[in-house]
């Protein structure tokens, strides 16, 4: 019994080591969604050039389930998900609103949308990361699913793939619409 006591430090070390080992599996770039189940942050963004909407504010989200997609013309991963967003728009599945994040050149975002297609219902310009920080965004693209009462229901980090859509986003959207 007394001898077993000598192994206590080792046991302690193993427990702590277990925590650290778990740490290796966590991706430090995937931050938790602090807004989960909370109201969307207040924002009121100016429109980008070449669109006839009056910008994009948190009030616009009231009354309908929608996606808020943070993108930028500089963002490579956004180009990956772009065709998928276009497909969602063409089938009229759910309104997607865009936050055009941190454009160095105010023409770059509109130019990119003009060339490759514009999947967004409303677009706001966020050159100084005001809305991006309010949403807790670390990199583009990130997409938030917001319900009709402007509560954030889900955050997806990285491009939306057909799998993510089929397995997570679309079922969630349908469920939120039933409520």
């Amino acid at each position: 019994m007394r001898r077993l006591m000598y192994f206590l430090p080792l046991v302690g070390l193993l427990i702590l080591g277990g925590f650290f080992l778990k740490g290796f599996e966590l991706n430090p770039r995937e931050l938790p969604n602090m807004l989960q189940g909370k109201q969307v942050p207040d924002f009121d963004l100016k429109p980008i050039k070449g669109r006839d909407d009056k910008g994009f504010s948190s009030k616009d989200l009231q009354g309908d389930v929608s996606l808020v997609n943070i993108f930028g013309s500089w963002c490579v991963a956004c180009q990956v998900e772009h065709p998928f967003l276009m497909a969602v728009k063409e089938r009229n599945l759910v309104p997607i609103h865009g936050i055009d994040w941190r454009e160095q050149d105010p023409d770059a975002g509109p130019e990119w949308l003009r060339k490759s297609g514009d999947p967004y219902t409303l677009v706001g310009d966020d050159p100084l990361s005001k809305a991006a920080i309010a949403f807790g965004v670390t990199g583009a693209p990130e997409t938030f699913l917001v319900d009709a009462d402007t509560v954030v229901r889900y955050k997806h980090i990285g491009p939306i793939t057909p799998e993510v859509w089929k397995e997570t986003l679309w079922p969630l959207i349908q469920e939120l619409r039933k409520q």
Binding site: L8, G12, I15
Partner: peptide, 13 residues
């Protein structure tokens, strides 16, 4: 406190 606990156990041992 993990490291402190382990040092403590070591001292006891």
């Amino acid at each position: 406190f993990g490291p402190l606990v382990i040092v403590g156990l070591g001292v006891v041992a």
